[in-house]
Design a protein around this nucleic acid. Structure first.
Lengths: 206, 206
DNA sequence: TTGGAAACTTAACAGTGTTAAGTATATTTG
DNA sequence: CAAATATACTTAACACTGTTAAGTTTCCAA
């Protein structure tokens, strides 16, 4: 009885085309303009059909957030080649900032917006995407601590602080808080801040 | 002709009562629930009356954001007593984090939400509140650089990076991204992260 | 051919920011 | 003093939002 299997496949196709439409709207028009109705219009279905494939809007945004983590993960992957753990952390930082600048909407969804987290809370799930990525940082930080590059007391607290520095720079920039600086400087501030961050990492070990 | 003056006073009273109502709703129900209608209901006026006193919702949120900066400023004031510039920066950090924890809604409005910044863009104004506060940090960072406590290349970039570290920790915490840690630890993570931050500041100078 | 399940839509609810037009009230003018 | 005007405020509406209950169409099996 292959009919049910075909139907299953068709359902999957529509589910994926909803996600594709959501991604297109999201990347073209941004988070605020990504409405159920705008997604529905793109696939030429009624808005309510979407609810037959996704529980609610949060579920769609969660799926997009996961895509973002896959994209970030693919860019982080190559850094396992870097032998020196401190250099690896520096390279991770560079990749992280570059990702935030290249894909500000994905970044916002992954690390700022509450919507994707709501989905986790509803389903009593753990934040696998975030945990895996953070694990990657923790691993390198632990190596740095073992080899005396970073004198943290607590791996997790230290990793969290380093992550926060980069996140803070990206988020303050994205949310227009670089207006504390003059226009010319505010455009370079994330790079300039990252330069100071690197200097700090080097000095920290001694 | 005191009649016009009386009317002016009455207009000011209503403008202030709108802001008071907005503040109450904002602090009681949070950012998302702070609607023009909910504010109007509280002062027993129609929603449209509010537009006679504030250009739009962004203008109200900007006014609330300014209140937040006054509150933060009052807590920062006393730190001018601290003689040692590095100790002063550490104390500023503590106050900053405490403020973010005590008043998460104000903090979000001041440093994360785009609404108050929209108002600035519309009116072609500078972000006076942010600039003043950042100036306070820059002053102490410059002193630290002069006295060899902090080897930054660029005062502004260094100050921005330090600010970002604290902002990042507060924002990631507020937006539920501490889910990368187990529940017990995520509750203390901002304090633990700040402890590592302090350690970094001390090590950085040597 | 009929019954029923599955897929999808229509219409509606309750909410949002915002604006045009209308209504009172108070003040100024002829 | 009465008419005209300016001020203050409200009503109703527009164009959206996420979401759901109820209705319709389509498809497959008995």
């Amino acid at each position: 009885m292959g009919i049910n299997e075909r139907k299953e496949r068709e359902k999957e196709v529509l589910q994926k085309s909803i996600l594709t439409a959501a991604r297109e709207v999201f990347l073209e028009k941004g988070f605020d303009q990504t409405s159920i109705r705008s997604i529905a219009q793109r696939i030429e279905y009624s808005p309510t059909t979407i609810y037959l494939y996704y529980k609610d809007k949060d579920a769609i945004l969660y799926a997009l957030h996961t895509e973002g983590f896959q994209l970030l993960g693919s860019k982080m992957e190559v850094l396992s080649m870097v032998e020196n753990p401190l250099e690896r952390i520096k390279a991770m930082g560079r990749v992280y900032i570059q990702f935030a600048m290249d894909h500000p909407d994905y970044y916002d969804l992954m690390f700022v917006q509450k919507s994707p987290m709501n989905k986790l809370d509803e389903d009593h799930e753990v934040w696998q995407e975030g945990m895996s990525t953070f694990e990657g940082l923790k691993f390198s930080v632990q190596q740095c601590m073992d080899q005396g590059y970073l004198p943290f007391t607590d791996v997790e607290a230290g990793s969290y602080m380093l992550w926060s520095t980069l996140h803070g720079m990206c988020n303050l920039y994205d949310r227009g808080r670089c207006k504390v600086l003059d226009e010319e400087k505010s455009e370079q501030i994330v790079d300039l801040g990252f330069a100071e961050f690197l200097k700090m990492l080097d000095a920290f070990g001694c």
